[in-house]
Design a protein around this nucleic acid. Structure first.
Lengths: 210, 210
DNA sequence: ATTTATAGATTGAATGATCAATCAATTTAT
DNA sequence: ATAAATTGATTGATCATTCAATCTATAAAT
């Protein structure tokens, strides 16, 4: 049974009209994310994803063409909350430039705070990241995400290190550590313990050089 | 064409006799490792693995019973060189107790030195690690490896931190960082750059507390 | 307001491909 | 001669994708 969200498509609140297509795509992405996180990329069949979304399997191909395109869109969706949280954290600190210790903390929090680094998100991301070497579509998303991540960290860190050249190294080191925590969250039963994220952020903030 | 390695099975050097079974199992594990690393866990069919080992697909089930058992054995084989290198590094430093800064360096080197942290090994490990939440067999191997890793790091670090309780935290932090580097090696094209491992070790050795 | 036309949305059965596992037959070693 | 090793065709299951048929919504026409 399909419910057409008329209050969304013809809402009077000035919201952009959401076509059925946009709604179905979003539902399928959310369903794919859930199935991939809970059962793994291997077990994420179109049947399961469609069933999770409450629609027929044929819909996947009607809107996305094929399963691979849906999964690529799903991978992109996983990291959006991190970027949004970073922007929010910067704004909350009144920073106009994403630079310095406060910006670094904003970035680390955007990656590690419990509201962002959930077991579901980490598990889903790991499913895609593990296939980067074999699926060019995933490699493209991954390298873009990683590039922006390292760039943000490097920029934040620049005024904190004595030499310019060290900033890039520190940015990479921090990105590697963040990856480690995401992996830990995905592979350890129950994810990170309460307070562990905060300790990790503090540890990374007090690391070595600065 | 099967070559029976008579010089191994009947060698006069005091080596333990290696039965055909042991030889075939080792060949299959090596082949599985290669296929998993090069094409991914998903694409590692029994056909491909057997072809890589130069034998028929039926052999997998003759010696391992099923594919899952072969893959579990393969996962275990991936981390053996790390443990061996740690023991060697300790011995090379003349350490009788795996404790202190030299032991920590020995452990970090065992995880990160270019001879150990190859793209093939990191890629293969990531294939299995990404599935620990969904394959109990992999979870068992992973948690054992992780337990021993954290234990070794914690023990090495204990005399370097002011309070006992901090050692476990530092051990976990180091393990997370090591995971990050393994993941980076697996997901970045070409793996770590030359010298990057050495810099990572030095950075971890000079980190924060000690 | 009712009807009708049209385009879009949805379904689910059918297709063809892939693969793990089995097993009877064959080869090899002792 | 006996046991072990090996082969490769077969089986049955799973899955992505296709497609013809059905359903729904919207707008034009009456």
């Amino acid at each position: 049974m399909i419910v057409y969200c008329v209050e969304l498509t013809t809402g009077t609140l000035g919201l952009a009209r959401q076509s059925i297509e946009d709604i179905r795509k979003a539902e399928l992405i959310e369903a794919a994310l859930a199935v991939v996180a809970e059962e793994g990329h291997d077990a994420a069949t179109t049947q399961k994803i469609a069933a999770r979304a409450g629609i027929s399997a044929g819909i996947v191909h009607h809107y996305f063409g094929d399963k691979a395109t849906l999964l690529q869109a799903t991978m992109r969706a996983i990291r959006k909350p991190v970027a949004l949280a970073y922007a929010e954290n910067l704004a909350a600190r009144g920073l106009t430039e994403p630079v310095g210790r406060a910006a670094l903390e904003a970035c680390l929090e955007a990656h590690l705070s419990p509201s962002i680094l959930t077991v579901r998100r980490a598990a889903a991301w790991l499913q895609f990241a593990a296939r980067v070497a074999y699926v060019p579509d995933y490699a493209r998303v991954h390298s873009l995400v990683r590039y922006r991540q390292v760039a943000a960290l490097t920029r934040a860190v620049r005024p904190l290190v004595p030499q310019q050249s060290e900033a890039a190294q520190q940015g990479m080191r921090l990105a590697v550590a963040l990856d480690g925590y995401w992996m830990e969250c995905a592979t350890r039963e129950g994810g990170l313990r309460s307070g562990e994220a905060r300790m990790a952020i503090d540890a990374l903030l007090s690391d070595s050089i600065w």
